[in-house]
Design a protein around this nucleic acid. Structure first.
Lengths: 154, 154
DNA sequence: CAGAAATAATCAGTGCCCTGACTAATTGAG
DNA sequence: CTCAATTAGTCAGGGCACTGATTATTTCTG
C-alpha cells in the first residue's frame, strides 16, 4: 500500500530512456566506442586543441569522468595529449588520424541510429521531444549553478 | 569540420536529463538512497515477497545490477532476503520496518522533487513529456525483445 | 616579490549499468 | 526415472558518473 506509479516519475523515465539508447547504440553504432566517447571526439573535431576541462564542459562531464574518458580514448590511440606551453596545468587535446576516421565512420552510423530510435515519433513530435527534454535539463542544471546574473556584482 | 550538433542527439539529451535528475535527487531527496534504490523499495511495498529477478524486471534492471542494488539495501537493513522454500533458486524479498519507513519518507520528498524538476513545463507539456519518452523507450526495448506475438507459434 | 587564492588534473571511494561465464536448483522430454 | 534444457543468482570485467581530498601550476593581492 502507498506505493507510487513509477511511470509518472521523470527520473525513472530518464533512466529507462538512457538504457534503451545504450542498448541500441551497442547494436547499431559500436561496441568499442561509447556515446560519451563519441561526444568527446565530436567536440575535438569542431575545436581541436581544447583542454580537458573545457571538453568536459562541452559534453557535460565532470572533471573526474572526463579524465577517464580521455584516458581511454588516448589508450586506443584516437587522441593526443600535449602539455600546454602557455599554461603548465593544462593538457591540449587533438584527434589523431585514426580518431578522425573513427569519428567520421560513427557519425554516419549515429545518424542512422537516431532515425531508428526516434521512429515512433512524427517529425513534429521529435521537435517537441528535443525541446521538452532540453528545457527540463537546462532548468535543472541552472538550479545548481546559481546562474550568471546579467550584471556581474562584485 | 564535419562535427555534429549534439543537442539534436537523443542519446546525449537522455544522458544530460538523467544527470540533471541525479543531481537534484541528491540535494532534494537523499544522499543515502538513490533513485534506483527507491524504485526497488517502491516495488516491494506494492508486492512484498517478490523474487530478485522479478523486481529487476519491474524497475528495469538486469540481473547483475539488481543483485548489487539489493545487496546494498540489505546491508543498510532496509530489506530481508529469504530462500524460497518452494524453489531453492529464488530469494524472496521483503522490506523491513526501517525499509517501509524510509520508503514513506522518500515518497514525500520525491513528489516535491518531481514538481521542481518538471516546473519548466506546463501541465499539458508534462503529459506530453511522459508520453513521448515512454513511447521512445518502449519501442527501443521492443527492438531487443523480438516481441511476444499475439498468438504464440510453436 | 611573497604568500594566498584560484585553477587543471589526478586519485580514492561509492554506485549504476551492461555482457559473458559460471554454479546451483528445477523442470521437462524421452 | 534420468539426462538435458531452463532458470535464479553470482562473479569478473569494462565503462559512466559523482564527491571529496590532493598535487602542481598560475594568478592575484598586499
Amino acid at each position: 500500500m502507498a506505493a507510487v506509479d513509477l511511470t509518472t516519475h521523470p527520473g525513472h523515465l530518464a533512466r529507462r530512456l538512457q538504457q534503451a539508447h545504450y542498448l541500441l547504440w551497442n547494436t547499431m553504432v559500436s561496441e568499442e566506442i561509447t556515446s560519451p566517447q563519441f561526444a568527446v571526439l565530436n567536440t575535438l573535431v569542431a575545436e581541436p586543441g581544447l583542454d580537458q576541462r573545457t571538453v568536459g564542459e562541452r559534453v557535460g562531464l565532470d572533471r573526474s569522468t572526463i579524465a577517464e574518458v580521455i584516458s581511454r580514448l588516448g589508450r586506443r590511440g584516437l587522441l593526443d595529449k600535449v602539455r600546454d606551453p602557455q599554461d603548465g596545468r593544462r593538457f591540449l587535446l587533438r584527434l589523431t588520424d585514426d580518431g578522425l576516421r573513427t569519428h567520421k565512420k560513427l557519425t554516419v552510423r549515429t545518424a542512422r541510429m537516431n532515425q531508428v530510435f526516434l521512429a515512433p515519433l512524427s517529425a513534429e513530435e521529435q521537435t517537441l521531444f528535443f525541446d521538452l527534454i532540453r528545457r527540463v535539463a537546462d532548468a535543472a542544471e541552472g538550479l545548481r549553478n546559481p546562474g550568471e546574473p546579467l550584471v556581474a556584482q562584485p
